[in-house]
Each structure stands twice: as C-alpha cells, then as structure tokens.
Amino acid sequence: MDIDLITNILYATVRTGTPLILVALGEMVCEKSGVLNLGQEGMLLMGAVVGFMAAVTTGSLFVAVLLAIVAGILMSLLFGFLSITLVSNQVATGLALTIFGAGLSAFLGSSYVGVGITGIEPMSIPFLSEIPIIGKIFFQQDPLVYLSFILFGVVFWIFKSSRIGLQIRAVGENPEAANAMGINVHKVRYMAVIFGGAMTGLAGGYLSLAYTPLWAEGMSAGRGWIALALVVFASWKAERIMLGAYLFGAASIMHLVMQGLGFEVAPNLLAMLPYVATIAVLVLLSSNHMKTKLSAPMSLGTPYRPQV
C-alpha cells in the first residue's frame, strides 16, 4: 500500500468516526450524571431531518446546523421531562424516544425526499493543513469535524479538571449524597441530558448536511446504537470513545478498500471487522475489572426521587 492510499483511508476514517464521536460524547456526559438515554437513534434522525429541512427552506447551512442542535435539545427535553421530572423508567422512555423520533422524522421529511442541496464543504485550515500526511488527514475536513475535535477537548477537560465535572459525577454515583452536599440533582441531570441532545442533534445535522447531504428515512442506519455501545466499551472515558470511534471508522473503510485491492476475503466477514476490532481493542483496554467497575456510574439508569 502506498502512502497516498493510507492517507486517503485515514482521511475517510476521521469523517466516518465523527458522527459516532459526537453522539457518544454526548451520551457519555448524560450517563455520567446517571441518566441512560437510549433515544439516541431517534434524536439523531430528528437532528438530521430538521437540519435538512432548514437548509432547504432558509438556504443557510449555519442556521441549519443550529436548528439541528435545537431539534436534538427539544427531543432531549421531552426525555428529561418524562424520565427526570415524572421519574419514568429510563430504558422504556429512551426506547420510546427512538421509535417516536424515527416516526416523526419520516413524517416531517416526507416531502423533502429527493431534494438535493449543496452540503457543508471541506475547509482547509491554513498552515495546519500543509503538514504532510497529518494535515491531509485532520485539517482538510469540514468545519463540523473540527467542531468535534473541540468538543472532545471540552468534554475531556470537564471530567479531568472542572468543578461541574465533579458535580455530574457525584450526581451519577450517589444522587442522595450529592443532594446532601447541596447539589441540585435534577438541575445537573437536566443539563447533562440537554448537552447529550445537543450533541446528537449536531451529529444528525452532520449526517444530512455534510456527510451525505440528503434526507432519506432512517438514514442514520443504526449509528445511534453503535455510539451507545461505544460508551460502555470505552468505559465512560472520552479519549477511549475517540479511539473506538476512529477504530470503527478505519475498519469500516478497510472493509471497502480491501475489496478494491483484490483481497479474497468474503465481504460479509469484512463487514464484521468494525464491530469485532472495536470491541476487541476496547475490551482489552478495560480488562482490569475493578477499574472498569469504578468508571461506570453507580446509579446509572436509576431515577432520583427527592426525599420529602
């Protein structure tokens, strides 16, 4: 394999991993606060359809991205209201949100099928994009990819060294104790859920505005679920989510490239590669059972009822 080909593969890898990173980082924050939101797929589709509709009607891609984020936030508020305020079962509510989002997005988007738009184009960053190899791989992408780098930094910093990160973790580990310390559990959980919704809405916008600038029903094709699994396998660590998402992306691209190069492996086996490789690596990383157990939020999935 020549260096050009490898560069091209890695370039495509970053693009493929981006929607997974956005969804998984958002869900990680949400889960750290003790809330399990299985509605990612539905929120992703809502972000995609609203973003696309906005791009067609307003003609502004910037507005489109903003509205995709708003759509994700609105969906997450609905989830938050049901699961935090009304203390409903998080698993059931999340699944309902996925079904609801898939249906509503199909309904909203039905007259936008077959409409073409000019999507978000790649934008080279001056100087950085001229670094050999690295520049091509990371700095000739589209603006939303750069945004994913920044958001990774933000999430990483939140849990590494910020007060709010500690509060989120406290709420996710032991809400009663956090409450006793004077943390408003519901407020923190709402904020985490909304952050997750915004991230997933953004990822939806990435799909329908940048990755494949079109709207088709169910176009997320299960990426919300893959991101959910990624959070667990990455044992709630932002850097491992990043690694896992790119690994998954690289393996998906390899599945296609290897066929072109004439490797005689059944494509169905190659199609398994992303899943197998990602799970294998992340399981190896988290082979220390005790440590993994510590990183899982203790009260994940348990609704919090304030004591009266």
């Binding site: 091209n8 990755y211 599945h255 169905n268």
Partner: peptide, 25 residues
C-alpha cells in the same frame, strides 16, 4: 467494471464511502 460490496441494502454514509473508494481506484 470494479465491484465493491457494502453488505447492506441501505446505509447512505457507507454507500458514499464505497463510492469514494472506487473513485480512488
């Protein structure tokens, strides 16, 4: 004619990546 199998009937993003792979070749 070069063929790339994506092992799915429907996944816009994957279909795009397959197209890009073919263009590279």
């Amino acid at each position: 004619v070069k063929v790339v199998w994506v092992s799915t009937w429907y996944d816009p993003a994957k279909e795009r990546e397959a197209a890009e792979t073919l263009i590279l070749q």
